[in-house]
Nucleic acid binder design. Sequence first.
RNA 1: GCCGAAGUGGUGGAAUGGCAUACACGUCGGUCUCAAAAACCGAUAAGGGCAACCUUGUAAGGGUUCAACUCCCUUCUUCGGCACCA
Length: 798
Amino acid sequence: MIYNFKEIEEKWQMKWLKEQAYRAQADDTRKKYYLLEMFPYPSGKIHMGHVRNYAIGDVAARFKRLQGYNVMHPMGFDAFGQPAENAAIKNKTKPDTWTHKCIKDMGTELKRMGFSYDWEREVITCDSDYYKWNQWIFLKMFEKSLAYKKASAVNWCSSCQTTLANEEVADGSCWRCHTKVEQKDLEQWYLKITAYKEKLLEDLGQLQEWPQRVLAMQNNWLGKSSGVDIYFGLKDSDKVISVFTTRVDTIFGATYIVLAAEHPLVKDLIKGKPQEKEALKFIDKVAKESKIVRTASDVKKEGVFTGSFAINPVNNEEVPIWIADYVLMEYGTGAIMAVPTHDQRDFLFAKEHKLPMRVVIQPKEQQLKVENLIQAYEGDGVQVNSQEFDGLSNLEAKEKIAAWMEKKGIGKIQTHWRLRDWLISRQRYWGTPIPIIYCSKCGIVPVPYKDLPVELPSEAPFTGEGGSPLGKVKEFVEVKCPKCFGLARRETDTMATFFDSSWYFLRFCSPKFEAAAFDIQEAKYWMRVDQYIGGIEHAILHLLYSRFFTKFFQDLGMIDFSEPFERLLTQGMVLKDGEVMSKSKGNTVDPDSMIKNYGADALRLFILFAAPPETELEWDERGLEGAFKFLNRVWRIHENLKTKAEDIIIKNLHKTIKKVSEDFSAFKFNTAIASLMELTNTIYQHGADKDVFSKLVIMLSPIAPHFAEELWQILGNQESIFKASWPKYDAQLLIEENVELVIQVNGKVRSKIEVPLDISESSLKELVLKDEKLIPWLGNKPPKKFIVVPQKLVNIVI
RNA sequence: GCCGAAGUGGUGGAAUGGCAUACACGUCGGUCUCAAAAACCGAUAAGGGCAACCUUGUAAGGGUUCAACUCCCUUCUUCGGCACCA
């Protein structure tokens, strides 16, 4: 007999919705648990990645409820963004219409999976009652000079026809459409995330429950590097070139310096020099090279001499100044001191252009000589040719030289970062309008708070062909200046959508609150997010921005913590035949058809059983079939319940309760399910009574909620199974009187014996030595050593 | 180059110093059936042996330990992040 999953799942889904079974209310008398999964972009259809992400979250939410926590488990939609615009163009509809239809369709699919969301808290970022607060946050940042406008070379995607943040560029290409990113000079809005760089780095230390790899990625992204800025004077002028180095110990070996082609002093340095023409040609060439070509590591290092000289401030030596393509304006000061003997890039460049070298660090095991060098020596050693620092270890010298230079005023201990401010202007329609007005008299004027929201006009002529579509909406653009009431124009760019998702977890605490972005009291109860679950692809972008916003809200005094997510779980991808499921590869499996064939419960069970949450999961429909068979196997138990279960079953049950409780707490769902399967197998051998079966059903309920709810009702319960409490195990029952000991000889298993739990070591020894199976191994020599691990094993060494 | 994660049967995976391969998939065999499906029961790392058993085995090599998938060192491979980063 097969249980009727279709009927059962529909029935309970309707009931849960009608009764608002998963409504969460703040309650100071109860311990809260805020469980959050990354909300989806409303594409219209859920995919297996969503199913996995949300199945993991739902099990945790339901488990915590059964344990008595007051659980908030909200869901919403990250609804602004380019795909809606593209789809609207394609389907000749409006992004708003298209998006809301997708939200509806996707909501239906999520409901069909039986996820226990509090739908009353649904947040949709493209609705003005949400994005109004994006604008409010932007204005607050503007007030604190954390939002500012700047002209600069920016990343430009010609296919998306918009600018991109540094975080949105991967391998020199647009993260969304993989088009090669170009550089363009534009005036754009930035958020000053760099104001929080130290705190963003330091607070990573708080995040004990985050995966190592995410912490490592954030650390890399922030890219702090400590060193010294050294001031090189010019030979023929009083200008100064500042270079940055992390190897100040090699300063006495600096035989030339190199500037990036874009360095502001370059034009001055070459002016009137015989090399001027050649240098200008080179600068022009570098400017045309794309960043990808320039940063490819196998490219030959090219450069030209400026004709000018600088003075090395530690020894007053004259050193030539070069321009080269391997020095980047974006990093450090855009200028380096070159130490060819101890830096491989400088070495290659010096060889190529026949520049001088000097060894200043001698390794212990060999004697370096400039004429014999075939590569730079980048390791540690002892200082030589370094005046009073000779003889010191270079590590010691590094600190001493830095301090000495600071004292003499020729250098400064300095830190450089990789992190850049966040460019948020997008030349697209479907996003939050930036609440700024440009007045020819008053300049940049923020929209007054009382005028929020700046509504996104419902009609705009977007064609996908570039230029901000809002710029063509006259009624939107033309506005009175809030200060002088003269004619002014609105900003026509919209905000990057990562702005929207940088604080939605706070909005969930009070999604309908009208007086502020969130209700401080509600946030005080619900925040921080106890468990956050989502894909590794957000390891940098979304998680970094959210951490930044949280720190900003803390500075505004609206919250009293600086990190939003206490625990983070990044779930692995779903693969098919070893490859990531994706539309472009055409190897996707539609969750909907799986629900039709096997039910949502079986799908949830399979996806949780097939692999631990963090690792990749290989899709296997036969495995799904197996999960379905298991549910049927459990289902049939209720038809044959005994009045009293045997002791062995009771013991097994309590062992299982212990194991499943521990595994659920640690998000080890695959092994939890394995123990439930083992218990089921034992029940097939020995039978179960109503109590044992009820407990099995409760333990299964977070994974297969409809299935469990139905069985719970069949067992005669009136209330929902999710009002029941998680079973507790009786430690007494887990204590065995006898225990099987493994007997090893020289570490190899040779026998097993059953002994009383509290056997003394001497009587155990006596017993073991009498074991006939051991005779061939022990011979008649006395054992050298006799190791006893209580209740586990004995190892005899001969 | 730097940083991070991983490598275990035919397959997904389990075991974090103490019986390697739990649980499941697949395969094979059996029960039931006119038959099939379903269901139920059993076998299933490799090699050797009629068998009881024995040997080998967790990417490779070495080490620590009575005992190593697990800890340490070296190397290889795969995946991910950063990178002419000074």
